[in-house]
Design a protein around this nucleic acid. Sequence first.
DNA 1: TTGAAAGCGCTAACAA
DNA 2: TTGTTAGCGCTTTCAA
Lengths: 336, 336
Amino acid sequence: MSYTIKDVAQKANVSVATVSRILNNLPGYSEKTKEKVLQVIAEMGYQPNAIARGLINKKTKTLGVLLPAVSDTFASVVLSGIEDMAHELDYSVMVCNTDKDGKRTMKYLQALREKQVDGIVFVSEFFKEEYYNAIIAMNLPVVLVSTKSQYDIPFIKVDDREAVFDGVNYLLERGHRSIGMIAGTKGDPIATLPRIEGYKRALKEKEIPVDKRKIAFGDFGFESGITAAKELLDQNEDLTAIFCSSDEMAAGALSYLYRMSIRVPDQISIIGYDNTKVAEMAIPPLTTVGQPLYEMGKSAVKMLLDRETAEQKSVFMPHHIVERETVKVIENKETE
Amino acid sequence: MSYTIKDVAQKANVSVATVSRILNNLPGYSEKTKEKVLQVIAEMGYQPNAIARGLINKKTKTLGVLLPAVSDTFASVVLSGIEDMAHELDYSVMVCNTDKDGKRTMKYLQALREKQVDGIVFVSEFFKEEYYNAIIAMNLPVVLVSTKSQYDIPFIKVDDREAVFDGVNYLLERGHRSIGMIAGTKGDPIATLPRIEGYKRALKEKEIPVDKRKIAFGDFGFESGITAAKELLDQNEDLTAIFCSSDEMAAGALSYLYRMSIRVPDQISIIGYDNTKVAEMAIPPLTTVGQPLYEMGKSAVKMLLDRETAEQKSVFMPHHIVERETVKVIENKETE
DNA sequence: TTGAAAGCGCTAACAA
DNA sequence: TTGTTAGCGCTTTCAA
């Protein structure tokens, strides 16, 4: 058993109220008693019990974070930003691996509520109606990162449509005319549909017809990148570049091309999305559309904690193209 | 404001004690009142306050995890195992990014204590004396994962010496005689020294002299793998293989070799350590000494929570070589 | 400047 | 089978 505030009060010959005041920097004691109490505290190694505090304050100084998988390269960087900012502001974070499982997510939401977290950040997943209802019921601030919802919940994300538009345009500007796309999960209204729109719009602006066979779907993971790359290459003989909706899928594509002895970027150019560590480590180093993942995590926490004062609104974060070595410039534009 | 147990009791016309009993599956009420109360609870959407509970039980059903960085490929898989097992056992986990910073670690230790976590798992870092003292003072169960200490604290890890021995031996068996090593942080008594010993022992058993110039040091990260690979290649003309002390460093080596147009495994064989996702995604796919990272995380939680009953002892987890495509068999053993 | 005491939401001993 | 009540460790009136 640890010491309690009572023990400290006794030993210092003051009341618990006084100790509490000193602990919380409230006015109401002489410099002398303060010194005395502080000394006793140091001697005993007393640490206040945050649970007891939380019961009164109705604040636990802890946040809940829900994400599809902590070991996900993408989510873990966001988490890292969340964690850093939380630490800066003296908050702790509880991580919840939803595994993309609705039932598991609901269980976590309940646990977070029971444990009285002060806010929730929800990363990169589709935000279901039942989550919304649960969160409304708990009356807690929430912010969405890298996803959004039909409800009035603030989010922080990149403008996917614009980001992909820019990425495809980057390819276009370098002379590519036959560009494939490895998109995300089919039908995903957050991370797939808008990106496909961005892709289409970029082509249309250059008056290049959109060809369905040039779009393959994956699930953002490495393996699916391999499969999708194969599909694309089998169906299109003239492809000079592929836009991939995640760095991991790009890595998968790279892997497939390596196996097929197709040289990147000489024969095929590849561009990824996210700018995670896998882009850096890829061979060759992957050119990609970067999202400020770490910053997004940080901002989410700031926004969450600000919400108690000023009502915050959603924000779109800037994306930018990180040039590395997987995109080649095609010179002979005459063929067009 | 949410409802409290009192509200439920009032509305159901029973005492709070009865509601509490029902909530905790304790004996002492009729089936009829149970039904009634359960119905009222459902109607109100009442959720117990875990903070109030924790104050009495002295159990918060939450664990603290300290790790160097959540975005680390290695640590995040361990975290994932921890999280899954914790969830299975109805615990929550608080993550603490120590950033390898002693001061930050101490701050976290204090926060975890104040928040009354039921146990701590400490991942993959050097366990300093001050941490030990702090933890002793809090009187909390701790388990170390992928690290160990001079103190009597249970750990879960792979036997590094054996693992590296096996890895180097794997190379030896395939005819390699001039093998370089990219080791971890110089002087690290946990993850570097024993591994170098394993490397040396393997060579000695084959009566191959150990050459200092064949050992380079890194920091387990990608960039350092690049630098170390360059160093090794510059200093040794005859190298046919490199053992790397992490997959990330192996990826760095791969990257350097690619840039130098040295073919893997035709000209140089590479073997990594950890078997993280980067090994899978490498080009070519990386042969590596695998650690059961996810399982280690799971076991750590099990061990931590068992400690309240049976006193658990440290365990060495099995390692195994994952064969992929970066090691070539050298036929002409005559040259030896 | 200080202390006594109520109470946060809950559990558990004791009584009925 | 049920209720009353005393705390858990702390903050916060209110009174001195």
